[in-house]
């Protein structure tokens, strides 16, 4: 067990400075941009005061990607963009070039590799999402699968710009809502529907009881003693299954294969344009987990109707 490092270690160096990653046209025109236009779905041009142009080709990505996929993006960037690219705040990848003639060959190559060009303007820009069963230990559902199934259904709205306006989607595997589920236009939220199953003999050993009690938004948790052991009990009428207690107290697991599922939320927004940011509102309280595609209830039809 090593507690002493052997040689002076570099620490606290922070990220690399972004400047080294900027396309020369971007660097030259930094802070001097004049306007932008959509040339077609997935292709933007930004025009600088100087007249210089930078083209951005936006490509959909599953976010959960292997080094093979990243290397593919790197290869494409080398081939068509002098190696310059970026990722977006909604998990897409953008290839950046100042050469208009590179656009079509890049698009053809990207699409041949199985990646869609789109997500710009009045479109769905991808679904922000969390780890789900792939990695999250408080997940009520899987999210990568849900996102894949949903984007398959809504694919036409990614590769085109035919919606009334931008549509931001998000999916989260539990109420911690990593991402922006609480403010997206349409959101899918993993939920539990049964109270935690308390392991009394573990609680006082691994959980700080006051923190566990105060972790409950509805004050449903009280300290108690069971067979001489300090533990907690949950008032099941007050419990709304948020699983925050499980986060602070590992002795209160809450996942329930029969009753966990997803809820659907509508009507949030993150930006200030025209109106203030808003929270999403509950549209459908429960759909059962039915991996891989939740086909049983044909929810994709519902979403298509909403659009």
């Amino acid at each position: 067990m090593a507690t002493q490092p052997s040689a002076p270690r570099k620490t606290d160096i922070g990220p690399p400075h972004y400047e080294q990653f900027l396309h020369p046209v971007i660097k030259k025109n930094y802070g001097q941009w004049k306007y932008h236009e959509y040339l077609k779905p997935g292709v933007m041009v930004h025009v600088a005061e100087s007249g210089d142009k930078i083209y951005s080709i936006r490509v959909g990505s599953p976010r959960l990607i292997s080094v093979d996929v990243i290397r593919l993006f790197a290869d494409l960037a080398d081939k068509y963009c002098d190696g310059f690219l970026r990722f977006t705040s909604r998990n897409n990848v953008e290839f950046l070039t100042d050469k208009e003639k590179s656009i079509e060959p890049l698009i053809k190559d990207v699409e041949a590799q199985g990646y869609p060009v789109g997500g710009t303007g009045n479109a769905i820009s991808n679904i922000i999402h969390t780890q789900g069963w792939v990695h999250c230990h408080s997940a009520a559902t899987d999210v990568s699968g849900l996102v894949k199934a949903t984007m398959d259904e809504l694919y036409e709205y990614f590769v085109d710009m035919k919606l009334p306006y931008k549509l931001k989607l998000a999916a989260a595997c539990c109420l911690n809502m990593c991402g922006a589920v609480h403010c997206s236009d349409i959101a899918i939220l993993g939920i539990h529907r049964r109270p935690p199953k308390i392991k009394d003999e573990q609680v006082s050993r691994v959980c700080e009881i006051p923190t566990t009690v105060s972790s409950c938004p509805t004050a449903a948790i009280r300290p108690t003693t069971v067979e001489g052991k300090q533990t907690v009990k949950v008032d099941e009428d007050r419990c709304m299954f948020c699983a925050n207690c499980y986060t602070v107290c590992p002795a209160m697991p809450i996942a329930d294969a029969l009753n966990d599922g997803v809820s659907l939320w509508v009507g949030g927004k993150v930006s200030n344009a025209r109106s203030e940011p808003m929270f999403t509102k509950l549209a459908h309280p429960f759909l059962p987990n039915n991996p891989p595609r939740c086909r049983r209830v044909d929810r994709a039809d519902w979403l298509a109707e909403v659009l």
Binding site: R63, A74, N91
Partner: peptide, 26 residues
């Protein structure tokens, strides 16, 4: 989230050698 292809390859090489090779970007 600006990168160059070389930067991405550096990260991929490190990760391939020492981990699963799966990532979230981002």
């Amino acid at each position: 989230w600006f990168y160059t292809s070389q930067a991405l390859r550096d990260l991929c090489d490190i990760w391939e050698a020492h981990g699963s090779g799966m990532t979230n970007m981002h």
